[in-house]
Every structure is written in structure tokens, then in C-alpha cells.
């Protein structure tokens, strides 16, 4: 019998799923706004705008709560990379995803409460949570209050670079979203990742944890 590990505290799970819901709402409304077209009204412009604004502000607030929670509860340590043989470990993790998994090799990373993320995961999350999301939120807030954006940047309107940055980062995060959802299915069973995020208990891969 594999020993289950208590991995995700309640606040973290609550944050994760709210974040996920908001992310979906933002992707849908954002795409609708960007490709607004009267002949193909996916979501009416005005509704999409309100939805995007409300969800965006909520996401920003959640981000602040997330950072705060991590600082208070020590969760930030999960993001502090262990540099010893980092590249090598990342390579091994990548190798597992690319072919190891097809050959039924053992998962190269052992999840423990003090180290939830495998090295690839950790680096990705560090970039997503530490760079991409703050950038997305900052540009989003500037678009919400365009009067705060610089009047002109390099001779062009100041809102323009902000808007482009916002859509580029948003798109990259959407790609991350896809990957994240898919990789979540690579746990002990297809749904064990999602289940773990709901119950808080991590189900280790078979062949480990003995």
C-alpha cells in the first residue's frame, strides 16, 4: 500500500481552483475581445469587457493572496531552486517526459512535502508565477487605467506596447495552461493529479514510496 502524502493545504487548493476558473474566464473573454467581430458575436463586447475586468482584478487580488500565503506559510521554499546538478536533473526529468514514460520507466522525481515540484516544474512555475503573471497583471492594470500608462513611448502611443505585451504574455500563459492541464494527467492515474488538488492528498507513483 502506497503511503499517501498530505501535500496541498486547503488555502492552496482554494487558490488553485479559483485561479483556474478565473484563467478560463479570462482566456475566453480575452480572445473574444481581441478578435471582436460584429458578424461573429461570440460573447457580446460589453459583457466580455466586464467579465475580463472583473476576472482580471480578482486574479490580481488572488495573486497577492497567493504571494502573501506563500510568504507566511513558508510555501516560497518550494520555489527556491536547488542548484546542485540542476541542469542534469532537469535533463533527466525531460528525458522521462519525452521517452521514459513510454517505456514505463520509474518517475525520476520523488514528491515529498518539502519538495513538491520536480526541477522542470519548479523552473516553469518560477517563471510563470515570478515573471509572467506579475507582468500580465501589471499590463492588465495599465490597460484598466490607461491614464496611468506613459503618454508616449518611442514616439508611439504609450498604451500600444502595453497592450501588445499583455496579449503576448497572455498567450504564452495560455500555452502554459494547456501544458499544465495535460501534465496533470501524468500522475499515478490520469485523474490522480486533479484528485490530489481537490483532496490535498498526493498519490505517489507505483513503485515508489516503499
Amino acid at each position: 500500500m502506497n503511503r499517501r502524502i498530505r501535500l496541498y493545504p486547503f488555502w492552496l487548493r482554494a487558490w488553485h481552483w479559483s485561479n483556474a476558473a478565473l484563467f478560463v474566464a479570462l482566456i475566453v473573454s480575452g480572445v473574444s475581445l481581441h478578435y471582436a467581430d460584429p458578424s461573429f458575436p461570440w460573447i457580446p463586447f460589453r459583457i466580455a469587457r466586464s467579465l475580463h475586468n472583473v476576472a482580471g482584478i480578482a486574479l490580481a487580488a488572488l495573486y497577492v493572496a497567493f504571494v502573501g500565503g506563500n510568504v507566511l506559510r513558508g510555501g516560497w521554499r518550494q520555489y527556491a531552486p536547488d542548484t546542485t546538478r540542476l541542469l542534469d536533473r532537469m535533463r533527466r526529468q525531460g528525458a522521462y517526459y519525452l521517452w521514459g514514460v513510454f517505456r514505463g520507466e520509474a518517475h525520476p522525481f520523488q514528491v515529498t512535502p518539502s519538495r513538491r515540484f520536480n526541477p522542470l516544474q519548479q523552473m516553469t512555475y518560477l517563471v510563470v508565477m515570478g515573471v509572467a503573471l506579475p507582468l500580465l497583471i501589471a499590463t492588465g492594470l495599465l490597460l484598466l487605467f490607461p491614464q496611468a500608462a506613459p503618454e508616449r513611448v518611442l514616439g508611439a502611443g504609450g498604451v500600444w506596447p502595453v497592450a501588445v505585451a499583455h496579449s503576448v504574455v497572455a498567450f504564452l500563459l495560455t500555452l502554459f495552461f494547456l501544458g499544465h492541464v495535460y501534465l496533470a494527467t501524468m500522475g499515478a492515474s490520469i485523474l490522480s493529479g486533479a484528485r490530489g488538488m481537490i483532496t490535498g492528498w498526493h498519490e505517489p507513483h507505483e513503485g515508489h514510496g516503499q
Binding site: 498604451v159 501588445v164 500555452l175
Partner: peptide, 24 residues
């Protein structure tokens, strides 16, 4: 309007839009 304003829904960068669809 490249020089003056960014208009949501109107200002689009073809290259970016295509790249995003392709990447998706």
C-alpha cells in the same frame, strides 16, 4: 493608429496573431 492609440479589437498585429494560432 499604430502611432496614436491602441484600440482593443481593432489594432491587431498580423504576424503576432498568426504566430499565436500556429503555436496553439
Amino acid at each position: 493608429v499604430f502611432n496614436d492609440a491602441y484600440i482593443i479589437g481593432m489594432t491587431r498585429n498580423v504576424a503576432l496573431d498568426r504566430a499565436s494560432v500556429a503555436a496553439f
